[in-house]
Simulated assay, not measured.
Amino acid sequence: MKLFIKYMVSNRCKMVVKEILKELNLPFILVDFGEVEIMEDISLEQREFLKKELLESGLELMDDKKSILIEKIKTIIIQMIHHTQEDIKINFSDYLSEKLHHNYNYLANLFSDAQGTTIEHYIIYNKIERVKELMIYGELTITEIAYKMNYSSVAHLSSQFKKVTGLSPSHFKQLKDKRRNQIEEIAYDTGKKN
């Protein structure tokens, strides 16, 4: 039996769900982002307990097929952008259609109606969050980040970054570096007094 869980987008969430399932003595086959497959049907009582436990952990058991589909769209996007080490070299519309077995126009309209934003904006927002994360780590140049995140150019990345954050990538990096310098100065000043 498959169950679908809203907001289950991290490894920590998967661990929490596994613990809840163990507590309920529900043997599971799979616990993945947004989805659980258990070996047997669950009683109404078990379902209510599961629902309650998930809510206490910030997660939500879903029943509505459209809500489940929207959550699957989000989970696939988050997984591809935030939880893969590979460079993103896919066409999201084709990928979503293929993974979810629905026409992309149907998925896009469903998502927009329910979320008040387009799939494209959701992807852009998540890509920019990932770009910020990669910039903070400081291991890649902006050119390498643009390539990794499948931007056609650094200019394209910079344009989207500025639209979403209000800052250019270089200004964002300067703010991050300035903050780091201030922390280093505090550590230096503290060390000087001793």
Rank of each mutant, 00 (worst) to 15 (best):
residue 187 A to K: 15
residue 93 S to D: 02
residue 59 L to I: 08
residue 49 F to L: 14
residue 109 N to I: 02
residue 186 I to C: 06
residue 17 V to C: 11
residue 177 D to T: 07
residue 166 G to A: 06
residue 154 V to Q: 14
residue 54 L to M: 06
residue 165 T to S: 03
residue 176 K to E: 11
residue 167 L to T: 11
residue 190 T to G: 02
residue 190 T to E: 10
residue 4 F to C: 07
residue 24 L to R: 01
residue 151 Y to P: 06
residue 171 H to F: 11
residue 140 L to R: 06
residue 3 L to K: 04
residue 180 R to E: 15
residue 56 E to I: 09
residue 80 M to A: 12
residue 183 I to P: 03
residue 192 K to A: 07
residue 132 K to V: 01
residue 108 A to T: 02
residue 96 L to Y: 08
residue 15 M to F: 12
residue 25 N to Y: 01
residue 45 E to N: 13
residue 57 S to F: 11
residue 142 I to M: 12
residue 108 A to H: 10
residue 175 L to S: 05
residue 7 Y to H: 13
residue 112 S to M: 13
residue 8 M to K: 00
residue 11 N to Q: 14
residue 150 N to T: 05
residue 76 I to F: 15
residue 29 I to Y: 10
residue 191 G to P: 07
residue 61 L to Q: 09
residue 12 R to Q: 15
residue 20 I to N: 07
residue 147 Y to R: 14
residue 142 I to Q: 14
residue 106 Y to H: 10
residue 24 L to Y: 03
residue 105 N to E: 13
residue 161 F to C: 03
residue 27 P to A: 03
residue 128 I to F: 05
residue 47 R to N: 06
residue 138 G to R: 02
residue 148 K to M: 11
residue 66 K to W: 09
residue 95 Y to L: 10
residue 182 Q to C: 07
residue 172 F to M: 13
residue 65 K to W: 07
residue 101 H to G: 11
residue 177 D to R: 11
residue 39 M to L: 12
residue 91 N to E: 14
residue 136 I to M: 03
residue 37 E to N: 04
residue 186 I to G: 06
residue 1 M to C: 09
residue 57 S to M: 07
residue 84 T to H: 12
residue 188 Y to D: 13
residue 47 R to F: 09
residue 72 K to I: 00
residue 142 I to F: 09
residue 42 I to W: 02
residue 159 S to Y: 15
residue 4 F to V: 06
residue 83 H to G: 01
residue 17 V to F: 12
residue 88 I to P: 01
residue 59 L to P: 06
residue 43 S to F: 08
residue 25 N to V: 02
residue 139 E to S: 07
residue 65 K to S: 10
residue 33 F to Q: 07
residue 20 I to S: 04
residue 59 L to D: 12
residue 2 K to M: 10
residue 163 K to M: 10
residue 2 K to T: 13
residue 6 K to V: 06
residue 114 A to R: 06
residue 19 E to V: 00
residue 26 L to W: 01
residue 162 K to D: 06
residue 52 K to V: 04
residue 116 G to N: 04
residue 26 L to Q: 03
residue 103 N to Y: 05
residue 119 I to P: 02
residue 48 E to G: 00
residue 97 S to F: 04
residue 103 N to P: 01
residue 38 I to R: 00
residue 32 D to L: 08
residue 83 H to E: 05
residue 150 N to R: 03
residue 29 I to C: 08
residue 42 I to Y: 01
residue 110 L to H: 02
residue 4 F to D: 04
residue 99 K to Q: 10
residue 117 T to S: 08
residue 91 N to R: 00
residue 139 E to R: 14
residue 166 G to F: 05
residue 28 F to C: 03
residue 3 L to Q: 04
residue 143 T to S: 14
residue 28 F to A: 05
residue 117 T to M: 11
residue 64 D to N: 15
residue 56 E to F: 12
residue 25 N to P: 02
residue 111 F to I: 03
residue 172 F to E: 05
residue 105 N to P: 03
residue 135 M to A: 05
residue 55 L to N: 15
residue 173 K to P: 00
residue 109 N to D: 15
residue 184 E to D: 14
residue 33 F to C: 06
residue 54 L to F: 11
residue 31 V to G: 08
residue 147 Y to A: 13
